[in-house]
Design a binder for these strands. Structure first.
Lengths: 192, 192, 192, 192
DNA sequence: CATGAATGAGGTTTCATTCAT
DNA sequence: AATGAATGAAACCTCATTCAT
């Protein structure tokens, strides 16, 4: 059942969140999900596969919501800020997943790094398109895109570190929107 | 000798950079440093101690250079941007260390997370003081500080991912300075 | 049905022949027979039971055919050589089974060894009776019986290794008959 | 030390002889040799490597002694029978090894089968050369060579099964020599 | 100071077997 | 009768760490 795989992914987030990826055993994860150790392998071919599935799920949702929220908008700045808010909203609904994707998974397993590079690249690409419409394509647009993505990730990570307090992440979205909105608007007016 | 410990830290960066922390063995690291496995334990009490030492060294240098570069300046915005440039300059001199601190170490070992939380907190504090002088202390200043630190880290990480091309990091510093300089100046004028 | 058990025994020969006994899983065997894993246990109480059944079937057929072919004969030498031909004829009809009994099963499971010791002993006994009629009971008869059985087994195994080429096993039977026939006749004339 | 590897090979023969290859654990083997489990892997890269080393050692000794014992002889029949005696003498000095090579190893692991096919082939080749000098090269010589090797192996195996009683194997060598000596001499006189 | 042989705990993974459907 | 999801025991192998030399 799809349900069992979901429970295993949640248990992975739980246990890896407590102990770190290397220190989390498959037995711990399966037992946290209420199953025997061997059952894990009926739903995932190897320990790291559950983590890869989590990365996939988070980024699929992030990209889906980001694209969705930009759909009705015209200006690149509006699109950009809508994307940032959407990303933060998705991450805000699952702090454990956010912590896994931004803090625990990087460097923990080659398969994680491969997948992170791929999906992180897609997100950067989405951002870069809008930024380039304002600043023109080039090094500046590349760096600003990275800055925006890094700012969002750090704000989200920091929010998780502080215990994921209710409502703070939405306000953080507005603050980021104001900072990058102002900067991009000014840069767009002045040019290089 | 202090020299041997340095060689072991460099070898740790090499091997962990290639394989990830969990996949890097003490034997690999010691052999990369031209020693036998047992010798590692004459300089570090446990495998993770070398990584902790690296985190310490990087952040000590980062904080030292950031404080130094702000010393002669008056305005908080100038201080802030000087700090950001200083941080990028330090990271730029040792891409492997930057990758370790921002990508490989987080989540890899409880001791890493403890130390990272501490030194990362110190850096955030340094930034927050200046930001608060412009925006006033409060949630906005906290978030903007995180955004700035996250932006710098992502730009540095991305630069390492691209192979640490010469000169790009300096230009990235100017771009970040312009983005955050503009935004902070405008916000400071307008207020909340 | 008896039919299903037969299909499972054939599948066992297939899969064990390809991978070896320890590397052949019950699931592989059942699927090769077109069934689900659990169905195996409706026909055999445990994994090794199918192999034991194969050993039984092969030796029952071997002993039956050997006894049959000796029925009309008088001289012990004739009986012996008829037996050898009969054994090779049975093995020749099922190379996979021959390979299992002489190569794969020995040592693979305690139950195999117990059963092999028993049926192998019966075959040796059959041979020994005839040999003893020529050489007289004693160590010489015992060793020559073993030699004959070992020669037949190795010739059959080697034939399987060479891919079970058509007709060669019949000619091998004649060659063995000539070698042992000559030797026994001479020894019988000369005595110890 | 070479000594430790030898002790591990002996322990492998002990434990595998009692339980069969698949049922013998590396931990059992190492403890039987008076070491910890991990120490096994300092001397062999994997569980099966100790078995392969045993096969190699037995066949090297067998081939060495067979070639040695034939050195001073002229007639092919004399060479043949000297070889058979030499082989039985080597096997007789290490019944456990004989049982491993002829009973336990075949089919137990792909690496065993590969090595057995190779060394068994070398032994057959050695025998075939002499047989061919008497019977002429061809199918008869091939089968008779196999018969001789199979007879020797079965006699040795049976001797181990009976508990390796002192002196019996030497007498068995004389009996085999007489049987095959007579048969080959007669066949050589009469021709096909 | 340096070595590297030895240890042994512990994790991932496989798979024979059961049993509810 | 047949299935196949679930179990959980058990094994191979790795590797951080120690210590005699």
């Amino acid at each position: 059942l799809e349900d069992k795989a979901q429970r295993l992914m949640r248990a992975t987030l739980d246990v890896v969140g407590e102990r770190g990826y290397a220190q989390a055993t498959v037995r711990d994860i399966a037992e946290r999900a209420g199953m025997a150790a061997g059952t894990f392998y009926l739903y995932f071919p190897a320990k790291e596969a559950a983590g890869v599935a989590i990365i996939d799920r988070v980024y699929q949702e992030v990209l889906r919501r980001a694209r969705e929220s930009r759909a009705g908008l015209r200006g690149p700045a509006e699109k950009l800020l809508a994307s940032a808010r959407a990303v933060l909203s998705v991450l805000g609904k699952d702090p454990q997943a956010a912590r896994f994707v931004f803090w625990l998974a990087p460097g923990a397993h080659p398969a994680f790094d491969r997948r992170l590079a791929q999906v992180h690249g897609e997100l950067l690409e989405l951002v870069r398109e809008d930024v380039a419409q304002i600043l023109g394509a080039g090094e500046a647009a590349d760096r600003v895109s990275e800055a925006l993505v890094g700012a969002v990730a750090e704000v989200a990570t920091s929010w998780v570190r502080r215990g994921a307090p209710d409502g703070e992440l939405e306000r953080a979205g507005e603050i980021l929107a104001r900072v990058f909105g102002t900067a991009l608007a000014a840069w767009g007016r002045e040019g290089a």
